[in-house]
């Protein structure tokens, strides 16, 4: 039986979207969703549709901007790119997540009677 996919923690999707846009430049919603899936090695359970709620939220906060355009294969799509304030926010959030995951890693690495590896 394949390993179950990870549920996304609250707030993580927004950060993933920001990071994807920072790394890849301008992308449409489908492109962002596929990038996240690929980057996570398809380990994340992502209903691609949920990405649009995240995109609206980020746009309303002024962290990304959107514009309709035409894709490589001549299809109309809305393209998103990260703003300057979005980059600042990304730096802050990324630092927070790295600290948090570092702490979680150390705490979970504590040797114990049961459950230890």
């Amino acid at each position: 039986m394949p390993e179950k996919k990870l549920d996304l923690l609250q707030g993580t999707l927004d950060l993933m979207v920001l990071q994807t846009l920072a790394a890849m430049g301008s992308l449409h919603g489908y492109g962002i969703a596929r990038r996240i899936e690929q980057a996570s090695g398809d380990a994340v359970l992502l209903n691609q549709g949920t990405i649009y709620a995240s995109l609206v939220r980020l746009q309303q906060r002024g962290w990304i901007s959107a514009e309709w355009g035409t894709s490589d294969n001549n299809r109309k799509a809305k393209f998103y790119s990260i703003t300057k304030r979005g980059r600042q926010q990304l730096a802050k959030d990324a630092a927070y997540w790295q600290r948090l995951s570092g702490v979680m890693g150390r705490v979970l690495a504590m040797p114990g009677e049961g459950g230890g590896r």
């Binding site: 209903n47 691609q48 549709g49 949920t50 649009y52 709620a53 995240s54 609206v56 939220r57 309303q60």
Partner: peptide, 17 residues
């Protein structure tokens, strides 16, 4: 299937918006 429910996604979009 990968999109995961068009109606729900629209609803979530509206809620966030």
């Amino acid at each position: 299937v990968r999109f995961g429910g068009v109606a729900q996604s629209k609803e979530k979009h509206r809620e966030a918006r």
